[in-house]
Amino acid sequence: MEIRHATNPTDFKSYTTESLRHDFLIESLFVQGELKMTYSHYDRVVTGGAIPTSQPLKLEDQDSLKTNYFLERREVGIINIGAEGNVVVDGKSYTLNKRDCLYVGLGNEEVVFESANAENPAKFYLVSTPAHKQYPTKKAPIEDAEPTHLGADSESNKRTIYKYIHADGIQSCQLMMGMTLLEPNNMWNTMPAHLHDRRMEVYLYFDMDENSRVFHFMGQPNETRHLLVKNEQAVLSPPWSIHSGVGTSNYTFIWAMAGENYTFTDMDAVSMDELK
């Protein structure tokens, strides 16, 4: 488990490109046959990626968490961005196709990732947060998720938002998780930007070709910086930071939030005049 410590917006102003990437960009999440995880001190969020091939992969890291099992004091949201796979939770198997979501709550002792075909493996993206109450394990196929259509071609931000884990969907303690798909010829997400100082956020960008990039903007509204993000890389967004991006082509991203406020619409809008 890689550990990322929190920083503050004052020090952030002096960061180099290398410093930004070291603290906020997760460059290598998905490796064949491995489970990779990053622990952030922003709301103690764990971000991970698993590609099981010929052997299953178990969700575990006792050395980092100092607990008997991974979900002893945590919950986790899992979205498959690859081929068909299974998540086995305490002996019960859940099949996830591409873009399906599974929530696994506090107290489940064993979570195992499997691919249906080792030659064409699943890619399980996971975000885990501390939890105080047990909620039931629940699957949400993408076809059952309620879409919200936003944006317009004229502003290059026509997109569809799918909310999986939230107050009106799959119940959780503090984790909120969903996915946004941009239509062809649309590149912008979340502009004008916003803040939510009550929770942090993680963005995973995917469904991009090898030469595509997303310019992810972050920082306080009057002190913005950018990260250049490749396919299947993730960005840790602090509570004090905007989080917005524009790509060289359309893309898909998974957003996950954790913190004090469980209200999806709790956002502090930032006007274009404030951005610098």
Score class of each variant (00 low, 15 high):
Ser154Gln: 05
Ala145Val: 11
Arg199Met: 04
Glu75Asn: 03
Glu75Ala: 06
Thr148Cys: 02
Thr53Ile: 12
Asp197Trp: 10
Tyr42Glu: 01
Val214Gly: 02
Pro238Phe: 01
Val88His: 01
Asp61Asn: 14
Ala118Asn: 08
Thr10Cys: 02
His41Tyr: 07
Arg159His: 04
Asn261Ser: 12
Glu18Arg: 10
Asp266Met: 15
Asp207Arg: 01
Glu75Lys: 14
Gly48Asn: 02
Tyr15Asn: 04
Tyr15Cys: 11
Asp207Leu: 00
Thr10Leu: 11
Ser244Ile: 09
Asn8Thr: 15
Ser40Gly: 06
Val46Leu: 14
Asp197Pro: 10
Ser28Met: 05
Ser156Thr: 09
Leu236Tyr: 03
Leu195Trp: 08
Leu106Ala: 07
Asn250Ala: 09
Asn68Ile: 11
His149Ser: 05
Phe30Cys: 03
Gln55Arg: 14
Ser14Lys: 15
Thr160Asn: 10
Thr38Lys: 01
His216Gln: 07
Ala256Phe: 05
Glu18Ser: 11
Thr16Val: 07
Glu2Lys: 00
Thr7Arg: 06
Ala116Met: 09
Leu29Met: 05
Met179Val: 14
Gly49Ile: 06
Ile26Ala: 02
Thr265Gly: 13
Pro238Leu: 01
His22Trp: 05
Phe215Gly: 05
Asp273Glu: 06
Arg44Val: 00
Leu150Pro: 01
Gly169Leu: 15
Val235Pro: 07
Met1Lys: 00
Thr148Tyr: 09
Ser271Val: 13
Ser172Phe: 02
Ser28Trp: 02
Gly105Trp: 00
Met191Lys: 06
Ala258Cys: 08
Met187Trp: 08
Leu71Ser: 06
Leu20His: 04
Gly77Cys: 14
Ala145Leu: 13
Glu210Phe: 04
Asn117Gly: 14
Asn8Arg: 06
Asn117Tyr: 14
Glu109Ala: 13
Phe217Asn: 12
Tyr69Glu: 03
Leu182Asp: 12
Thr137Glu: 03
Met208Arg: 08
Ser64Asn: 03
Asn68His: 10
Asp209Arg: 15
Ser19Ala: 08
Ala83Ser: 13
Ala122Lys: 13
Arg73His: 12
Arg44Pro: 00
Ala6Val: 04
Gln55Cys: 06
Pro136Ser: 05
Glu146Val: 07
Val31Gly: 04
Met272Arg: 08
Tyr103Cys: 09
Ile170Ala: 03
Thr129Met: 09
Leu20Thr: 02
Met208Cys: 13
Tyr103Ile: 14
Thr224Gln: 13
Lys230Leu: 09
Tyr94Gln: 10
Met37Thr: 02
Leu126Arg: 04
Val112Phe: 12
Gly169Phe: 11
Lys158Leu: 15
Asp63Phe: 12
Thr148Ile: 13
